[in-house]
Each structure stands twice: as C-alpha cells, then as structure tokens.
Design a protein around this nucleic acid. Structure first.
Length: 867
RNA sequence: GGUCGUAUGGCGCAGCGGUAGCGCACUUCCUUGACAUGGAAGGGGUCACUGGUUCGAUCCCAGUUACGACCACCA
C-alpha cells in the first residue's frame, strides 16, 4: 500500500474555527449526495433503519436531538463500514395530537355533516396550543379540516427537517414518507384488509373504554392511571332479612346496577348467594352473586355490579352472564330512556330527573335523593384512588357499549402470545434488559387491539356494510375494496356492485365512518419506509430492517404493534436490532415534559455550542440510560472539536522530508500500535451498539496524542537539531497516519469538524464515505514490541512536568540535567526516547539509572538568566 | 403488590474478584511560536446498607433501603 495519500500537502485555514461548519457541510453533503441511498446495492450490503417518524404536532425538544443522534452515529459508522445505509425520514402527521393542534391553531373543528367550502379561509392562524372551547371553534367540513391538517403539518415538517440538517442527521432526504399520504393510507388499508382476510381483524359489539371529550374508543395501550379524589357512598340495599350495605364511588350508576357481588369464601355473604335484593330508589330486583375478583377487604366486602363502572364490572358482567343496563351515553351523559328493569313509578321518576345529566351532576343529585330517602348512610367519605384516563384526555374514561374493530394481538390467544414472546427473543434489544418491557406487556395483554376510532382525521377503515331490506346495516356482510383501488374513502366511494344512490338505502350500503387508531398505521413504518406497495423491489432489499431506534416508553405500543403486524403479514421480525434511548432529564434530573415547562428548544444548544458539541453530549449517553441536559458536556464536546481542528492543523504542518518516508522510530511505531488497539476496541464497541465506548476510547487516545505524543515529537517533526531526514519523516508520517485514523474514528460523532479537516488534505470526497479504519492498515511494517513505549513516554513527561511545576517555572524552562530511573528492562526502552525527551524537556544532560520503580529525579534547572 | 433498572469523590459518569478511575468544578502554577475556546501539576471517595461465598469483594450471591420506569390495583 502506498502512503502517498498521507503525503498530500495540507491547506488548513490561517485560523481554524467551528463557526459556519454546520451550514457549509450540510450543504456540501446535500449537493454531493453523500447520504443518498444506492438502491443497486446487494441486499446483504444494505443497512436499513426504521426511523421513528416524529409526531408533527408540536414543538421539538432536545429529547429528539438526543435519540436521533444515537441513531445517526450508528448510520455513519455502518456507512463507513461499506454498508449502503437506507436511512429514510418519516413524518407522523396522523392522530389526535394533530387534530387538536389544528383546532386550536386555526380555531376550527370538524363537522362531517357540513359540505366542503372552496377556498376556505380559517378564522385565524397561529393559535396557541391551549385547548379552547368547542363553542368558539368554527365548524367546517371534514375535507376542509383535513386540508388544514395537511397545511399545518407541511410547515412543521420543514422546521423538523431544517433542525435535523443542522444537527447533521445523515438521512437521505429523498427518502421520506408521511403517515397521512395516500401511499401510507393505502399501506395501512391493505394491511388491514389482509388482517381481515386472514381472520386477524374482526368487529365486535362490546363494552369499550370511552373518552367522553374526544368521543372515541381508546385502546389499552393508550390508558393512563391518575390519582383522583372520590368518595365512598354507603348505600343500603333491601335484602330478604334487612339491609345489605355496599360502598360505592359511583352512586350515579345505581340505576345500572345488575347484581351485588361478594367473594365465594366470604362467610358474611354466603347465605345471600342465589337470593335477590332490591336496589334503593329504583326498587329493581338484582341477584347476589359470588366471584373470585370480589375483595373481602374492600368497602363492606360486597359490591354492586353496574354496567359499567370499571373494567372489573365488565369482567363480572361477561363471566356471570348478567344483563346490560348501560346508562352512560357517548357524550358522557346519562341516556334519556331508563333501563327496562326500572318499572316502579318512583324509579322512573328518579331516572327522569337524572337523564341528560353529566355523571358529575347525576352523582350530586342522586346523593341528595338517597340521603332524603334514608338509603344512604352518613356523608360521603372522601378518598383518592387511581382512575383510568385516556393519556391525552382530561376526563375519566367511561365504559360504553359500542361496535368496534379489533386486531388479534394475543390478548385472547395464548399461542399467539407465545409466538410473539418467542419472536421477541430473536430481536436484539440494546440494552438487552429492555426486552423485559416487551415481554411484560405481551404477557399483560387483557384483550385484543381495539383499532377503530370515532374521529375524522386519519386512515379510514376501508369497508362498507350491506343494508338489509329494512335499511339496517348487516355488519356480517362486510364489503371490501379490491387492493388496486386503495386508498379508498368509504364515505365518498362506493363498494363494487353498488352505486352512490344506494348509499343509506334499503338493500344498499353504508360506509364505515370510523378511522383507524394511529398505531394501526404507525405499526407499519417498515412497510411505509420500505415501499411495500409503492416500490416492492426496494422493499425486498431493505426489509427486514437492521435497526429500529426508539424510546423506551413506546415499547408497548410502537415496537409491539410493529412486531405484531410484521409477524402477521410477513411471518418474520421487522428488524434485527432495537436500540432504545433513554429520557432527557433537565439539569435537576426531572423528566423534561411540556407540562413541567422545563423543555429546552433544541435549536438553542446548537446555536450556543455547535452541532458537534451537542452531538457529543448526546453520544456520551449510553442506550437505555437517562441523561441530564448538560451544557457542561456540550462545552467539553466543543473543546474536543476545536482541539481536533487545531491539533490537525499542527500535525499537518509537518511534511516528511523523505519521499520514501517510513515510520521507523520506536515511539512513532508505538503510537500507531496503540492506535490499532483503539481501532479494534472502537469497532467492537460500535458493532455491539455501544457507541459511548467507541467515543470514549477514541477520545482518550486523542487527548494523549495531543498532550503527550505530539509534544514529545514536535521538535523532531520540525527537523530541529541533530535529527536525520528519516527520523524527521518518521514523526511526520506517523502524525499523518494517526490523524488519518483518528478523524475517521471521530467522524460519526463530530461529522462537521472531521469532514472539515479531511477536506484540508484528502481529495477523496467526504470522510463520511471513507472506509472505517482497520488495525491492519496501521500495523503494516511495525514492530509490535514497541507498544509499551507510548505509555512510558507519558510517565516520563509527567515526571519532568511535575518537577517544573513544583519549581513554578515554565514548561519551557531549560534543564541542566535530569535522571530517569527505572527497572532494567524498561530502561532499554526508555533509551530509545532519549533524543525526543531531551528536546521537549530542554534538557542538557539526561542520565539513565537502574532502580526498583520508575521515577524522574535530580532535575537541575538552568539558571533563569540563561533562558 | 409484581417486574426491570440505578445507587462509585461537590456534580456528571467509567470500571473491575486483588486494597478505586475519567470529565467538570476546586487549589496552585505556566500569558510556550497548533490551540487562553489554551497548557501543567495537585487536593478530594471506608465504591448505599446488612449478611454470605472467597485467601481476598466496590465488583459474585441473598436480603434491606432510596430513587426512576413499566405493569397490576379502581366497589
């Protein structure tokens, strides 16, 4: 191998600086297509990344910068290893966050009954993110609403892209997708139809967790428990032998009571099992039943079962085969019709009074009535207890019986669950223990995945239903489109064999109005990013993906659902590796979140410290580990980047005087021998997704290089004094070789500074397409026995510096004489350093002496006047 | 209540079966011709607690405590 490319003259600028490097190199990379994916590459040679599509519904924060840096570092490493990296970017512009944001930003809300308005101008633009009252929002058609969604998300996407470019995320910007695009809708619908055809998707009329604000069903994965104030109300039921007292936090559900329940082993209530009691106020006869989920300790040990107060009610209702007397409507208010079971005049009267009230008002009123009638004992007893909320909602969830679509996820099928657990074992989680979160979630599933949402902005469920002779939908006759027609909107398109005028008519059809859960589309990011429908040839090359980077909080949603869909659709894992980033905490180690108001806008640290510095901070945190927002760390990163520029400029200022330069000197060989080990360590670390280790070893070597080696050999590299041309050339060449390798080791972390230096002296294009360094390229022609010398030289320098520091003189102070003491074997090595050491230490006479321990002694400084 | 993770100098983190390291901060010094956005030399920790294994534990095992996360619990 020729060393010619090391010898090329370098042209660093007069004064080096980090300023402006981001813009300069971001543009260069874009112009030269450095990160463009070459689709002609062999599948085996492609490294594909299933990028998290950021939710384009609000502002970015440093958490994005953090995790995207982790991914980018891997992408750049793989690219330098010769892989053709498929690194697309997606935008998640579906779902409630976008819908909400559009409502507030433009002051509108969607009313699907309204007609489309041409050239619609919203009431205003740029509203804040606080929720405004629905009454203040202008109702507009669904199509107008979606247009506004698209308008707003397009603006957001531009901002996101600009930030990623500044940060140096090496995405191929020609490879992007949006979850709202027609292609994404088609992918989502096709996958759903395949699920349907295979029997994995089905519809069911069932009690469903329901958000009364958004008026939509929500899925298990979207639940969140919140501690809420509540109160126990002690109510007396009329039993055969007197009053039975129960305690309830939901007295307003008394008209929906279908039974009382106690634990089978509870001796207090065993005599009542099989008998009936009558409800207070409504005088409805209900059975007393036994069930293992009833707790003897809670309340009075006997509870009323209502349709439906909580999920336990649903279990009891289902397992005990009880009647349904649901009284909560879609709007969260009590329905107008009393359940048929209420037959007494008084009961009907009471219900009529409650009808139409919110649960809150109904509760207040029924408590008054119960107290008046004497059926309630004492005052409500305040407690706090956890209540299920939709994670984005602000009212407790109700349970409402509705017809919904589900996808089988193993929640009701042990064998599928086992298959999914087994699949998870083949996925390499980084860090490995994150797999536990996945397994916990799979094992804790309580039902199938509810994917239908009663919203307007999203992917329509692509089916119609036939209407019978009376004009009622026959939900068993699901009409589906053929795949080549996708995407479809069943509310404006017709199923095959029908015409539009048959919509809603007897023997005609109706379109499904629901849309799919946002995860139903997000779970298909490998298919979206890979071009499953649009570009099957590409898809075959990039799928399964090599890497899924994501946050730990969405293992149960995004990771799980993606794995599930891939298992169903392709029978294999969607990726081989999952890299899980930790949280960003504020400097007080609290999790950053909008509600706490401690979110840092990501452009700020980049402005203040530079992209390389911010990347350094992010890359210093290991996968799966939370990290504090730490500007101190960014300063260190900035210092490293600046040092890299300066040290490079200095090292490159030395040119080998010998055209056939060889690294001949022992200390120069030692440098490269040590660097070869660093290369091996860094490579190994990267291969096991331990980027912090790779950075650490490179950084440690680099500082030793500048602080010690460079100091030690610079006199020789200058060619000062008695050095021969070969000796001078050895140093100069070693410096260049080391730099050539170190720059590449740093390239994934500090892409701007490293490409800047690379461009000073290499004509080979971007460093980010240069080959990842190998130990072999460094080791050629070296004598391995010299390896320890670098460390020895460091020790010797420390000793000398300490002597000068103790004497409080400049490091440049002349020394008349000094003695190096060391064991005999080491002494032989140290003698090889004599000339360099004398030169750097300005030592007149250097003595060597044999001794037990290494030391620098007898340092005699020259009189100050002679300096 | 279950599971997982974390616990190392003031702060942020490495580490490892053989009596502790790095960076920041701190102290002192050096305005050296790559870099004052710099450099050098220092001080500072009984590695959360209690047991066990071992010749020897910060590192392995068991338990405890604290913190974080996820899940479960909603009468």
């Amino acid at each position: 191998m020729t060393d010619m490319h090391f010898l090329a003259p370098a042209n660093p600028p007069e004064k080096v600086s980090l300023e402006g490097l981001e813009d300069k190199w971001a543009k260069n990379w874009d112009d030269a297509g450095v990160f463009a994916f070459d689709r002609t590459a062999d599948k085996a040679n492609i490294y594909s990344i299933d990028t998290p599509p950021p939710t384009v519904s609000g502002s970015l924060h440093v958490g994005h910068v953090f995790s995207y840096t982790h991914t980018d570092v891997v992408a750049r490493f793989q690219r330098m290893c010769g892989k053709e990296v498929y690194y697309p970017m997606g935008w998640d512009d579906n779902g409630l966050p976008t819908e909400r944001r559009v409502q507030n930003y433009f002051g509108v809300r969607c009313d699907p009954t309204l007609p489309y308005t041409e050239n619609f101008v919203p009431p205003f633009e740029g509203g804040d993110n606080k929720s405004s009252k629905a009454a203040d929002q202008l109702p507009i058609s669904r199509r107008n609403f979606i247009e506004l969604c698209e308008k707003l998300t397009a603006e957001d996407e531009k901002q996101f892209e600009a930030l990623w470019r500044r940060l140096g995320v090496s995405v191929d910007w020609k490879q992007t997708y949006q979850t709202i695009s027609p292609d994404a809708v088609a992918v989502s619908q096709k996958a759903f139809l395949n699920n349907l055809a295979r029997g994995e998707a089905y519809q069911s009329m069932a009690p469903t967790l329901w958000d009364v604000t958004f008026r939509t069903a929500v899925a298990q994965a979207e639940l969140e428990d919140r501690e809420q104030p509540s109160a126990y109300h002690r109510l007396g039921f009329n039993g055969p032998d007197g009053k039975i007292f129960i305690e309830t936090t939901r007295p307003e559900l008394l008209p929906a009571c279908v039974a009382l329940v106690a634990h089978p082993d509870d001796e207090r209530y065993q005599p009542l099992f099989g008998k009936t009691v009558r409800t207070p106020l409504f005088d409805v006869e209900v059975p007393v039943v036994a069930h293992r989920l009833a707790s003897q300790e809670k309340g009075s040990g006997i509870a009323m079962i209502c349709t439906f107060g909580d999920v336990t009610d649903v279990i009891w209702w289902r397992e005990l085969d009880l009647p349904n007397r649901a009284i909560i409507g879609w709007d969260g208010r009590l329905i107008s019709e009393a359940p048929e079971a209420i037959t007494s005049e008084k009961g009907k009267e009471v219900f009529a009074e409650l009808a139409g009230k919110t649960t809150f008002s109904a509760k207040q009123r029924i408590v008054e009535l119960l107290q008046e009638s004497g059926d309630m004992v004492g005052e409500p007893k305040p407690i706090t207890h956890p209540v299920k909320f939709f994670e984005k909602g602000d009212k407790p969830l109700e349970i409402v019986s509705t017809r919904q679509w589900y996808i089988r996820n193993g929640g009701r099928d042990e064998s599928l669950r086992d298959e999914l657990i087994a699949k998870g074992k083949n996925l390499a989680f980084h860090p490995d223990f994150m797999r536990v979160r996945y397994e916990n979630w799979v094992n804790g599933l309580t039902g199938d995945w509810l994917i239908s949402r009663q919203r307007f902005f999203g992917v329509p469920i692509p089916v119609w239903y036939a209407l019978d002779a009376d004009g009622n939908p026959d939900y068993d006759r699901v009409l589906t489109p053929s795949h080549d027609l996708l995407p479809v909107d069943p509310s404006s398109q017709t199923p095959a064999g029908y015409t539009e005028d048959q919509r809603g008519k007897a023997n005609g059809f109706i379109g499904e109005v629901d849309i799919m859960d946002t995860w139903a589309t997000s779970s298909l990011t490998p298919q979206l990013a890979g071009g499953w429908i649009a570009d099957p040839e590409k898809f075959a090359k990039v799928f399964p993906f090599d890497l899924r980077p994501q946050g730990q909080d969405i293992i149960r949603t995004w990771l799980f659902s993606t794995l599930l869909r891939s298992h169903q659709e392709h029978g294999e894992l969607p990726w081989t590796n999952a890299a899980i980033s930790g949280w960003i905490l504020d400097p007080d180690r609290k999790k950053m979140s909008k509600s706490k108001g401690n979110v840092v806008v990501p452009a700020e640290p980049i402005d203040n410290h530079g992209a390389d510095a911010v990347r350094y901070w992010a890359a210093s945190a290991r996968l799966g580990t939370d990290a504090a927002f730490d500007e101190g760390m960014m300063k260190i990163g900035r210092r490293l980047a600046i040092k890299l520029l300066n040290a490079s400029k200095f090292a490159l200022s030395f040119e080998p005087s010998d055209k056939n330069a060889k690294v001949t000197e022992a200390i120069d060989q030692s440098l490269l021998l040590n660097l070869a080990e660093v290369v091996n360590e860094a490579t190994k670390a990267f291969q096991s997704y331990d980027h912090t280790k790779a950075l650490e070893v490179a950084e440690q070597f680099f500082w030793n290089f500048t602080d010690n080696y460079l100091e030690l050999v610079k006199e020789r590299a200058y060619g000062h004094g008695e050095y021969t041309s070969a000796e001078q050339s050895s140093a100069a060449l070693a410096l260049r070789k080391a730099l050539h390798t170190m720059l590449r080791l740093f390239a994934p972390f500090l892409p701007f500074a490293t490409d800047e230096v690379w461009a000073w002296w290499q004509n080979t294009g971007s460093i980010h397409r240069a080959a990842w360094p190998t130990a072999e390229e460094l080791l050629e022609g070296l004598d391995g026995s010299n390896i320890a010398l670098l460390e020895l030289s460091k020790e010797a320098l420390f000793g000398l510096r300490k002597a000068k520091s103790d004497a409080q003189v400049s490091m440049k102070a002349n020394v008349e004489s000094a003695t190096l003491v060391s064991p005999a074997t080491v002494l032989t090595e140290l003698r090889k350093l004599e000339a360099d050491f004398k030169a750097v230490g300005k030592i007149e006479t250097l003595n060597f002496e044999e001794g037990e321990e290494f030391a620098v002694k007898d340092v005699v400084l020259a009189p100050a006047e002679e300096v």
